[in-house]
């Protein structure tokens, strides 16, 4: 698509509640690239938690409440692979046969995951002003498989001269978050995140970054519970911090 002048920033409920700095950094990156960013007032949640738990009426009710605040024909930028996947791929399914199905499909077609938008549409160039650092990248499953944008985070990080990326074993394997899976199958989820944190810790990385706050909450919470580990951080916050706002 051509470069838009204005975009919606769809922060997601997790960013809103737990990781507002990641959301803010995403908005700042976009603004630094000369894009006007609108944080739509009515936004709450994409409906994914209920959708993935089988409660589609409830998911629809919440998703429907989002249509008004995303009404303008401008891109919707989502700092999360799984919420972007919900909007782009599952809203059309969820709204199928509903009177507002067309509006939902319209939003779906305008939805971008943040790193996808930065690379594919804005083709941003980032300068690195930080000290040398070794990091590991956790690619979320929805960014990787549903959205197919796992390599965008690598592209962006690759522009940062002082950043060395270390690769953990079984990088493509799920961290065990899975939304309500972490509660409904708590012990399995615990075993999965144990394997994931072991693999990440073994790289010796100082920081673990990801496109998804769900994974970060899972991995970071497990590191903390285990008595420490690499710091976890959302890609937007990491890029903003490293570039110091030097975005072209």
């Amino acid at each position: 698509m051509t470069r838009p002048s204005t975009v919606y920033f769809y922060a997601t409920c997790l960013v809103d509640l737990l990781y507002p700095r990641a959301g803010l950094a995403g908005m700042q990156l976009l603004r630094a690239a000369d894009i006007e960013v609108i944080l739509a007032r009515g936004q709450t949640c994409c409906g994914q938690p209920a959708f993935n738990s089988g409660y589609r009426d409830e998911a629809l009710a919440v998703a429907r409440a989002q249509l008004d605040c995303l009404a303008r024909d401008i891109p919707v930028i989502v700092p999360s692979g799984s919420c972007a996947g919900m909007l782009r791929h599952h809203w059309p399914e969820l709204f199928a046969g509903e009177p507002d199905a067309r509006r939902a499909r319209d939003v779906a077609a305008r939805t971008y995951e943040l790193t996808e938008f930065l690379v594919d549409v804005l083709a941003v160039r980032l300068d690195d002003v930080g000290e040398p650092i070794r990091i590991a990248i956790h690619t979320s499953c929805s960014a990787r498989r549903e959205m197919g944008v796992a390599d965008r985070i690598e592209t962006l990080v690759g522009q940062l001269a002082g950043v060395e990326v270390l690769t953990q074993d079984r990088k493509a394997e799920c961290c065990g978050f899975g939304g309500t899976f972490a509660v409904k199958q708590g012990d399995v989820s615990g075993a999965m995140v144990r394997d994931k944190t072991d693999a990440l810790r073994a790289t010796g990385a100082a920081r673990v970054i990801s496109q998804d706050c769900g994974c970060l909450m899972n991995i970071g919470g497990a590191f903390d519970h285990q008595g420490g580990g690499p710091r976890t951080q959302h890609i937007a916050e990491f890029l903003w911090e490293r570039s110091g706002g030097n975005v072209r």
Binding site: D16, L24, L39, R194, M217, D224
Partner: peptide, 23 residues
């Protein structure tokens, strides 16, 4: 089950909306 393997997440001190307004 969450905190059997992880620390509890804690809401941020200020909401994104507040941070964004300041910026």
């Amino acid at each position: 089950a969450w905190t059997r393997y992880r620390s509890a997440p804690r809401p941020a001190a200020r909401t994104l909306r507040e941070l964004a307004r300041d910026e």
